[in-house]
Amino acid sequence: MRVYLASVATDGKANSHALARPPVTFSFVQPTSVEAALRAVGTPGSVAIAGGTDLLLDFDNQRIAADRVVSLNGLPWKHLTRAGGRLVVGSTLPLRRIELDPRVAVDLPGLYQSVHAVGGVPLRHRATMGGNLVRASPASDLLPVLLALEATVHIVGAYGSRASSLDDFLRGSRSVDLAPGELIESVSVPYPAPSAYVWQRVRPAKDISQVGVAVARVPGAGHWNVALGGVVPRPIRSPSAERHLTRLRPKAEEITRAAEAASEGVAFATDRRASEAYRHLLVSVLVRRALDKAIPPEAPS
Protein backbone atom coordinates (compact mmCIF):
# COMPACT_ATOMS: atom_id res chain seq x y z
CA MET A 1 0.00 0.00 0.00
CA ARG A 2 1.28 3.45 -0.83
CA VAL A 3 0.44 6.21 1.51
CA TYR A 4 0.63 9.64 0.03
CA LEU A 5 1.17 12.45 2.46
CA ALA A 6 0.80 16.01 1.34
CA SER A 7 3.83 17.87 2.50
CA VAL A 8 2.88 19.84 5.56
CA ALA A 9 4.60 23.14 5.33
CA THR A 10 3.75 26.29 7.15
CA ASP A 11 6.34 28.40 5.42
CA GLY A 12 4.17 28.99 2.41
CA LYS A 13 6.34 26.97 0.05
CA ALA A 14 4.26 23.85 -0.39
CA ASN A 15 0.63 23.45 -1.23
CA SER A 16 -0.69 20.00 -1.99
CA HIS A 17 -3.05 21.46 -4.54
CA ALA A 18 -0.27 22.80 -6.61
CA LEU A 19 0.58 19.16 -7.20
CA ALA A 20 -2.93 18.12 -8.09
CA ARG A 21 -3.59 20.61 -10.86
CA PRO A 22 -1.98 23.55 -12.55
CA PRO A 23 -2.15 26.53 -10.24
CA VAL A 24 -4.67 29.20 -11.04
CA THR A 25 -2.98 32.54 -11.52
CA PHE A 26 -4.29 36.01 -12.18
CA SER A 27 -3.79 39.48 -10.82
CA PHE A 28 -6.46 41.09 -8.69
CA VAL A 29 -7.80 44.62 -8.65
CA GLN A 30 -10.66 46.10 -6.69
CA PRO A 31 -11.70 49.45 -8.14
CA THR A 32 -13.66 51.78 -5.89
CA SER A 33 -15.41 53.81 -8.58
CA VAL A 34 -17.80 52.65 -11.28
CA GLU A 35 -15.73 54.45 -13.94
CA ALA A 36 -12.57 52.65 -12.88
CA ALA A 37 -14.41 49.33 -12.75
CA LEU A 38 -15.79 49.80 -16.27
CA ARG A 39 -12.33 50.68 -17.55
CA ALA A 40 -10.87 47.62 -15.85
CA VAL A 41 -13.45 45.12 -17.13
CA GLY A 42 -13.24 46.67 -20.59
CA THR A 43 -9.57 45.71 -20.79
CA PRO A 44 -9.07 42.45 -22.70
CA GLY A 45 -8.14 39.52 -20.47
CA SER A 46 -10.19 40.79 -17.53
CA VAL A 47 -13.11 39.11 -15.85
CA ALA A 48 -15.40 40.60 -13.19
CA ILE A 49 -15.91 38.82 -9.89
CA ALA A 50 -18.56 39.48 -7.24
CA GLY A 51 -19.15 36.64 -4.77
CA GLY A 52 -16.99 34.28 -6.81
CA THR A 53 -18.78 31.20 -5.49
CA ASP A 54 -19.52 29.98 -9.01
CA LEU A 55 -16.80 31.75 -11.02
CA LEU A 56 -13.88 30.39 -9.00
CA LEU A 57 -15.02 26.83 -9.74
CA ASP A 58 -14.62 27.60 -13.42
CA PHE A 59 -11.05 28.71 -12.81
CA ASP A 60 -10.35 25.51 -10.88
CA ASN A 61 -11.83 23.36 -13.64
CA GLN A 62 -9.99 25.33 -16.30
CA ARG A 63 -13.21 26.31 -17.99
CA ILE A 64 -11.99 29.89 -17.94
CA ALA A 65 -8.70 31.70 -17.56
CA ALA A 66 -8.02 35.39 -17.21
CA ASP A 67 -5.03 37.66 -16.75
CA ARG A 68 -6.89 39.81 -14.32
CA VAL A 69 -9.82 39.51 -11.98
CA VAL A 70 -11.73 42.71 -11.29
CA SER A 71 -13.55 42.62 -7.97
CA LEU A 72 -16.83 44.54 -7.91
CA ASN A 73 -16.94 44.49 -4.13
CA GLY A 74 -15.48 47.99 -3.81
CA LEU A 75 -18.47 49.50 -5.66
CA PRO A 76 -21.53 51.07 -4.01
CA TRP A 77 -23.78 48.32 -5.37
CA LYS A 78 -24.76 46.58 -2.17
CA HIS A 79 -28.03 48.40 -1.66
CA LEU A 80 -31.55 47.12 -1.11
CA THR A 81 -33.91 50.03 -1.73
CA ARG A 82 -37.56 50.61 -2.49
CA ALA A 83 -38.68 53.27 -4.93
CA GLY A 84 -41.79 53.78 -7.05
CA GLY A 85 -43.30 50.42 -6.15
CA ARG A 86 -40.12 48.52 -7.01
CA LEU A 87 -37.57 46.73 -4.91
CA VAL A 88 -34.08 47.45 -6.21
CA VAL A 89 -31.37 44.93 -5.36
CA GLY A 90 -27.78 46.01 -5.87
CA SER A 91 -25.93 43.48 -8.01
CA THR A 92 -23.19 42.76 -5.47
CA LEU A 93 -25.42 42.56 -2.41
CA PRO A 94 -24.87 39.13 -0.81
CA LEU A 95 -27.99 36.97 -1.06
CA ARG A 96 -28.07 36.55 2.69
CA ARG A 97 -28.86 40.26 3.10
CA ILE A 98 -31.97 39.90 0.93
CA GLU A 99 -33.10 37.00 3.05
CA LEU A 100 -32.56 38.81 6.36
CA ASP A 101 -34.42 41.94 5.27
CA PRO A 102 -37.55 41.87 7.41
CA ARG A 103 -39.87 42.98 4.56
CA VAL A 104 -38.79 40.77 1.68
CA ALA A 105 -40.34 37.59 3.10
CA VAL A 106 -43.65 39.47 3.48
CA ASP A 107 -43.75 41.54 0.29
CA LEU A 108 -42.10 39.06 -2.07
CA PRO A 109 -42.39 35.59 -0.56
CA GLY A 110 -41.32 33.92 -3.82
CA LEU A 111 -38.09 35.92 -3.90
CA TYR A 112 -37.38 35.04 -0.29
CA GLN A 113 -38.01 31.35 -0.94
CA SER A 114 -35.77 31.29 -3.99
CA VAL A 115 -32.89 33.05 -2.24
CA HIS A 116 -33.24 30.59 0.62
CA ALA A 117 -32.97 27.72 -1.87
CA VAL A 118 -29.45 28.73 -2.92
CA GLY A 119 -26.61 26.82 -1.20
CA GLY A 120 -26.11 27.22 2.54
CA VAL A 121 -25.75 30.32 4.70
CA PRO A 122 -21.93 30.64 4.37
CA LEU A 123 -22.30 30.52 0.59
CA ARG A 124 -25.12 33.08 0.65
CA HIS A 125 -22.91 35.44 2.65
CA ARG A 126 -20.88 35.86 -0.54
CA ALA A 127 -23.01 34.80 -3.52
CA THR A 128 -24.81 37.69 -5.23
CA MET A 129 -27.85 38.35 -7.38
CA GLY A 130 -25.73 39.94 -10.12
CA GLY A 131 -23.45 36.92 -10.20
CA ASN A 132 -26.38 34.54 -10.46
CA LEU A 133 -27.76 36.52 -13.41
CA VAL A 134 -24.49 36.77 -15.30
CA ARG A 135 -23.69 33.11 -14.76
CA ALA A 136 -27.20 32.22 -16.03
CA SER A 137 -27.23 28.58 -15.04
CA PRO A 138 -30.28 26.75 -16.42
CA ALA A 139 -30.67 25.30 -12.91
CA SER A 140 -30.54 28.66 -11.14
CA ASP A 141 -33.05 28.90 -8.30
CA LEU A 142 -33.29 32.68 -8.66
CA LEU A 143 -34.03 33.06 -12.36
CA PRO A 144 -37.55 31.51 -12.40
CA VAL A 145 -38.87 33.81 -9.71
CA LEU A 146 -37.22 36.85 -11.27
CA LEU A 147 -38.82 35.93 -14.62
CA ALA A 148 -42.21 35.49 -12.97
CA LEU A 149 -41.78 38.88 -11.30
CA GLU A 150 -40.86 40.42 -14.70
CA ALA A 151 -37.55 41.67 -13.31
CA THR A 152 -35.64 44.47 -14.96
CA VAL A 153 -31.86 44.28 -15.23
CA HIS A 154 -30.08 47.63 -14.89
CA ILE A 155 -26.82 47.65 -16.82
CA VAL A 156 -23.99 50.19 -17.04
CA GLY A 157 -21.32 50.52 -19.68
CA ALA A 158 -18.78 53.08 -20.77
CA TYR A 159 -21.51 54.66 -22.95
CA GLY A 160 -23.97 55.16 -20.07
CA SER A 161 -26.69 52.90 -18.77
CA ARG A 162 -29.52 50.79 -20.13
CA ALA A 163 -32.29 48.61 -18.77
CA SER A 164 -33.35 45.24 -20.10
CA SER A 165 -36.12 42.86 -19.20
CA LEU A 166 -34.69 39.69 -17.71
CA ASP A 167 -36.43 37.72 -20.45
CA ASP A 168 -34.43 39.57 -23.11
CA PHE A 169 -31.28 39.48 -21.03
CA LEU A 170 -31.19 35.67 -20.82
CA ARG A 171 -29.98 34.20 -24.06
CA GLY A 172 -29.19 30.58 -23.42
CA SER A 173 -27.41 28.26 -21.12
CA ARG A 174 -24.81 30.39 -19.35
CA SER A 175 -25.23 33.05 -21.99
CA VAL A 176 -26.60 36.56 -21.46
CA ASP A 177 -26.94 39.82 -23.33
CA LEU A 178 -24.08 41.64 -21.66
CA ALA A 179 -21.42 43.18 -23.88
CA PRO A 180 -17.74 43.07 -22.90
CA GLY A 181 -17.17 46.04 -20.63
CA GLU A 182 -20.76 46.15 -19.37
CA LEU A 183 -21.73 45.40 -15.76
CA ILE A 184 -25.01 44.75 -13.98
CA GLU A 185 -25.61 47.49 -11.45
CA SER A 186 -28.91 46.24 -10.01
CA VAL A 187 -32.03 44.20 -10.56
CA SER A 188 -35.50 45.51 -9.79
CA VAL A 189 -38.88 43.86 -9.31
CA PRO A 190 -42.33 45.24 -8.52
CA TYR A 191 -43.57 44.76 -4.97
CA PRO A 192 -45.58 43.70 -3.10
CA ALA A 193 -46.36 40.66 -5.27
CA PRO A 194 -48.02 37.43 -4.14
CA SER A 195 -45.53 34.82 -5.29
CA ALA A 196 -43.97 31.48 -4.50
CA TYR A 197 -41.01 29.34 -5.51
CA VAL A 198 -40.97 25.57 -5.11
CA TRP A 199 -38.37 23.06 -6.21
CA GLN A 200 -37.63 19.35 -6.32
CA ARG A 201 -34.23 17.84 -5.67
CA VAL A 202 -32.70 14.40 -5.40
CA ARG A 203 -31.94 15.29 -1.79
CA PRO A 204 -33.30 18.38 -0.12
CA ALA A 205 -30.04 19.88 1.11
CA LYS A 206 -27.03 20.95 -0.90
CA ASP A 207 -28.06 19.95 -4.36
CA ILE A 208 -29.17 21.61 -7.54
CA SER A 209 -32.89 21.58 -8.26
CA GLN A 210 -34.15 19.11 -10.87
CA VAL A 211 -36.95 21.53 -11.60
CA GLY A 212 -38.02 24.79 -9.98
CA VAL A 213 -41.37 26.53 -10.48
CA ALA A 214 -42.13 30.14 -9.64
CA VAL A 215 -45.49 31.88 -9.76
CA ALA A 216 -46.14 35.58 -9.22
CA ARG A 217 -48.93 38.06 -9.61
CA VAL A 218 -47.54 41.38 -10.77
CA PRO A 219 -49.52 44.54 -11.52
CA GLY A 220 -50.71 44.80 -15.11
CA ALA A 221 -50.05 41.21 -16.14
CA GLY A 222 -53.72 40.18 -16.07
CA HIS A 223 -52.85 36.65 -14.94
CA TRP A 224 -50.49 34.71 -12.72
CA ASN A 225 -47.04 34.55 -14.26
CA VAL A 226 -45.57 31.05 -14.24
CA ALA A 227 -41.85 30.42 -14.81
CA LEU A 228 -39.95 27.16 -14.99
CA GLY A 229 -36.34 26.46 -14.06
CA GLY A 230 -34.27 23.40 -14.87
CA VAL A 231 -35.38 23.92 -18.46
CA VAL A 232 -32.84 23.85 -21.27
CA PRO A 233 -31.30 26.01 -22.44
CA ARG A 234 -32.62 28.62 -20.00
CA PRO A 235 -35.48 29.19 -17.54
CA ILE A 236 -38.65 30.34 -19.30
CA ARG A 237 -42.17 31.62 -18.72
CA SER A 238 -45.02 29.25 -19.46
CA PRO A 239 -47.74 31.09 -21.42
CA SER A 240 -49.68 27.85 -21.82
CA ALA A 241 -50.14 27.66 -18.04
CA GLU A 242 -50.66 31.39 -17.58
CA ARG A 243 -53.66 31.38 -19.96
CA HIS A 244 -55.70 29.48 -17.39
CA LEU A 245 -54.76 31.68 -14.45
CA THR A 246 -56.43 35.03 -15.01
CA ARG A 247 -58.29 35.06 -11.68
CA LEU A 248 -56.47 36.09 -8.52
CA ARG A 249 -58.01 32.97 -6.99
CA PRO A 250 -58.28 30.51 -9.88
CA LYS A 251 -60.87 27.72 -9.70
CA ALA A 252 -59.66 24.20 -8.96
CA GLU A 253 -60.15 23.08 -12.57
CA GLU A 254 -58.23 26.08 -13.87
CA ILE A 255 -55.30 25.15 -11.67
CA THR A 256 -55.50 21.57 -12.94
CA ARG A 257 -55.51 22.74 -16.55
CA ALA A 258 -52.60 25.11 -15.91
CA ALA A 259 -50.61 22.36 -14.20
CA GLU A 260 -51.18 19.99 -17.09
CA ALA A 261 -50.37 22.57 -19.75
CA ALA A 262 -47.36 24.14 -18.04
CA SER A 263 -44.62 22.06 -19.63
CA GLU A 264 -46.25 21.75 -23.08
CA GLY A 265 -43.59 22.07 -25.73
CA VAL A 266 -40.85 22.67 -23.16
CA ALA A 267 -37.50 20.91 -23.56
CA PHE A 268 -35.89 19.55 -20.42
CA ALA A 269 -32.54 17.89 -20.14
CA THR A 270 -32.12 14.24 -19.30
CA ASP A 271 -29.15 14.07 -16.95
CA ARG A 272 -27.99 12.32 -13.82
CA ARG A 273 -30.52 14.24 -11.73
CA ALA A 274 -33.65 13.35 -13.69
CA SER A 275 -35.01 12.21 -17.03
CA GLU A 276 -36.88 14.60 -19.28
CA ALA A 277 -40.12 12.66 -18.70
CA TYR A 278 -39.74 12.94 -14.95
CA ARG A 279 -39.12 16.66 -15.21
CA HIS A 280 -42.37 17.06 -17.15
CA LEU A 281 -44.20 15.23 -14.40
CA LEU A 282 -42.52 17.34 -11.73
CA VAL A 283 -43.57 20.57 -13.39
CA SER A 284 -47.25 19.72 -13.22
CA VAL A 285 -46.98 18.81 -9.54
CA LEU A 286 -44.91 21.87 -8.68
CA VAL A 287 -47.14 24.34 -10.55
CA ARG A 288 -50.01 23.20 -8.38
CA ARG A 289 -47.92 23.44 -5.21
CA ALA A 290 -46.58 26.87 -6.10
CA LEU A 291 -50.09 28.22 -6.72
CA ASP A 292 -51.37 26.67 -3.49
CA LYS A 293 -48.60 28.47 -1.68
CA ALA A 294 -49.00 31.82 -3.43
CA ILE A 295 -52.73 32.36 -3.85
CA PRO A 296 -53.85 34.73 -1.10
CA PRO A 297 -56.49 33.33 1.26
CA GLU A 298 -60.08 34.47 0.80
CA ALA A 299 -60.70 37.61 2.83
CA PRO A 300 -63.03 36.76 5.73
CA SER A 301 -66.55 37.99 4.83
Binding site: Q30, I49, T53, L57, P122, H125
Partner: peptide, 19 residues
Protein backbone atom coordinates in the same frame (compact mmCIF):
# COMPACT_ATOMS: atom_id res chain seq x y z
CA UNK B 1 -13.73 25.23 5.37
CA UNK B 2 -16.15 27.67 7.05
CA UNK B 3 -14.56 30.62 8.88
CA UNK B 4 -15.94 33.94 10.08
CA UNK B 5 -15.18 37.08 8.08
CA UNK B 6 -16.21 40.12 10.11
CA UNK B 7 -18.42 37.73 12.04
CA UNK B 8 -20.15 36.26 8.98
CA UNK B 9 -19.75 32.57 8.15
CA UNK B 10 -17.89 32.25 4.86
CA UNK B 11 -16.59 29.38 2.74
CA UNK B 12 -12.84 29.98 2.74
CA UNK B 13 -12.34 27.63 -0.23
CA UNK B 14 -14.36 29.94 -2.50
CA UNK B 15 -13.07 33.25 -1.17
CA UNK B 16 -10.05 35.07 -2.54
CA UNK B 17 -7.83 36.24 0.30
CA UNK B 18 -7.54 39.62 -1.39
CA UNK B 19 -11.32 40.03 -1.21
Amino acid sequence: CTVLVDGESTLSCLTLTRE
